[in-house]
Design a protein around this nucleic acid. Structure first.
Lengths: 338, 338
DNA sequence: TAAAAGTTCGCAAACGTTTTCGCAAATAAA
DNA sequence: TTTATTTGCGAAAACGTTTGCGAACTTTTA
């Protein structure tokens, strides 16, 4: 079943049928109606590969994310999917598992026109962006979200990470904490840096000296993370509050506290970036900084389509900043310490 | 940059270059090496659309799922992705949001060769499978996972839902429950039926009469679900235990109990199907039936590739059953009732 | 030594679209 | 009426691959 057969059935030329199906102005309304009717009757579907080959557009976008079993990213995908469906676009998904080599491999594979554009959050390991620059230069627009790449001239959708880091730390201070830990991600990740800077700024504002012993940098290895947290929480100068700049570290902290029988919030107050739907059901419920993940996905996709529809030209460094919200719960509840 | 330019640079014919790149036996090893070197040097990437058009294979599979912000499905995707990467396949993702009309729309769109095969879990609303039968008949193999479609002759990957439903109910009984509720999904969903039958069988084994007042059927509307649960938990003959056949209902139950000040597990014991990583951190920790989601994804993908590689012929009704595991936690802890 | 078989490659026809160009016929303007 | 312009459509050349077939050359077999 192809357009040729369809044309024969209609006694029309292939070109006329093609144009009719694309609703070209060159075709009369009656002819279009005939074509549409016959196409429906014969259950004709256009061949996307022939079409893409000829038009140099795939009607497909790629989404590159570091992980998928994480509410933040799955909510982002939901937002992306919403916009993509509106535009009749398809979504190819690639998961890097925080592995730069995979990210590079994917980037190279996308050089060939398989997708019209890319939405991505860089892997935590990534600190060289050549593969992404090359992709951009080959004409594939990239829009970053959350974990962006400052050095590439394109749009990104981020949240107010500095302010959130500041607010989280301030919140802990206001709840009585004076020794505030930072449990964060790798240093070179954009979001982590910003959150950390916000943390430092808040410490400064309240006249607290930064203490490197209270800072934990997480990797991908859960056991290692928990070990690092355990070390901090059992040290002589242990923190009375902690700001987890990533959900993974909050979970790890809960586990460690459970194991060490450290009570949250009386012995340790905890606030974390998180998009868990059930923060409220944790024991105790977790005070979170929650990012508007769904909206991030939507905005990122919309921005990409602005490039694809040439409403926006590439190499315009544009940042869209959405606001996260701090939701106080039990894990930072003020307690009357001894 | 295309194969033509590559061929000119090499002083070879296009066909030789093509064959060399595909590692054909017809090309000598020295020539292959030359071609590969030049391809690398010129940064040549094959055009996937031209290739797909010519070969009638897309190296792409579609994954159709009802939702993505759910650990079960995102873990399944991880499993699928693992196998797909091994096979150098790409993954298109389609989310139905439990909407049959979207499912039908997606199924129709996939008639055109965009994908070589489909992996899917049907939407809860689906009870007519014509669109899927048509897709199969048009030559696109479908492998179902979890929410399968019994009436279509193909492979499916499921878990031992009857046994799990039985075990869950039995577990509640053994923890002292005598009035056991069932909080489940729509009737016509395969998994829900099986789990429900397991529930009934366990009741029967222990001589408990089924009580329709203890059965809640969930929809997509969270508020409505919570209202229904509230009604049951505040009725005169309220249950002393409940089996949630879907995670959503367990969350709703926690919320309702919190609101009504019903203590879990002393006043209500709760067990639920769930793939939450943090069931252990809930208050109280949740006893779960956990499905091997990652493995389900892998198996489903592997089975699909058996079709694609013609190692398995379509229309073979084959079911692969994996085992879920019951993990007892605080929410079903035996209590000394008054 | 001739025939058969094997090796290595090129020609050209697909695959199913889209689109440029062109050409009639119909309509509008002069 | 003649000359432009518009309207509706068709022929054919792309798009970048893959592959059946055959040519030329080399090696093996009879």
């Amino acid at each position: 079943m192809n357009i040729k057969i369809l044309a024969e059935q209609l006694n029309l030329s292939i070109s006329t049928v093609s144009r009719a199906l694309r609703d070209s102005y060159e075709i009369s309304e009656p002819t279009k109606a005939r074509v549409r009717a016959m196409a429906k009757q014969l259950n004709y579907r256009i061949n996307p590969y022939a079409s893409s080959l000829r038009r140099h557009r795939s009607k497909t976008i790629a989404v590159l994310i570091p992980e998928i079993t994480n509410n933040f990213f799955s909510q982002v995908i939901n937002g992306i999917e919403y916009i993509a469906q509106e535009k009749n676009y398809h979504i190819l998904i690639y998961i890097t598992h925080e592995d730069v080599r995979k990210e590079i491999e994917f980037a190279h594979h996308l050089h060939n026109g398989r997708v019209d554009g890319v939405l991505m959050s860089v892997s935590a390991e990534t600190n060289n962006y050549d593969h992404l620059n090359e992709l951009m230069e080959s004409g594939v627009p990239i829009v970053f979200f959350d974990r962006i790449c400052e050095s590439i001239e394109t749009s990104s959708i981020i949240t107010d990470d500095f302010e959130s880091g500041f607010a989280a730390t301030e919140h802990l201070f206001q709840c009585g904490c004076r020794r505030i830990g930072f449990f964060g991600l790798f240093e070179h990740l954009s979001i982590s840096r910003k959150r950390y800077e916000g943390y430092l700024a808040a410490l400064k504002k309240y006249g607290i000296n930064k203490d490197d012993d209270l800072i934990v940098r997480s990797g991908n290895d859960i056991a290692a993370n928990e070990a690092a947290i355990t070390k901090v929480l059992t040290s002589a100068n242990k923190p009375d509050g902690a700001f987890a700049s990533i959900e993974k570290m909050a979970i790890a902290s809960y586990n460690v506290c459970k194991r060490l029988d450290i009570d949250i919030p009386s012995q340790l107050k905890l606030i974390s970036f998180s998009n868990l739907e059930i923060s409220t059901l944790l024991n105790p419920s977790l005070t979170t900084i929650t990012q508007p993940a769904y909206e991030i996905g939507k905005q990122a996709a919309m921005q990409l389509f602005r490039y694809l529809e040439k409403k926006l030209y590439m190499n315009r460094h544009e940042k869209i900043v959405l606001k996260s919200s701090l939701i106080p719960r039990q894990s930072t509840k003020k307690t009357h310490s001894a």
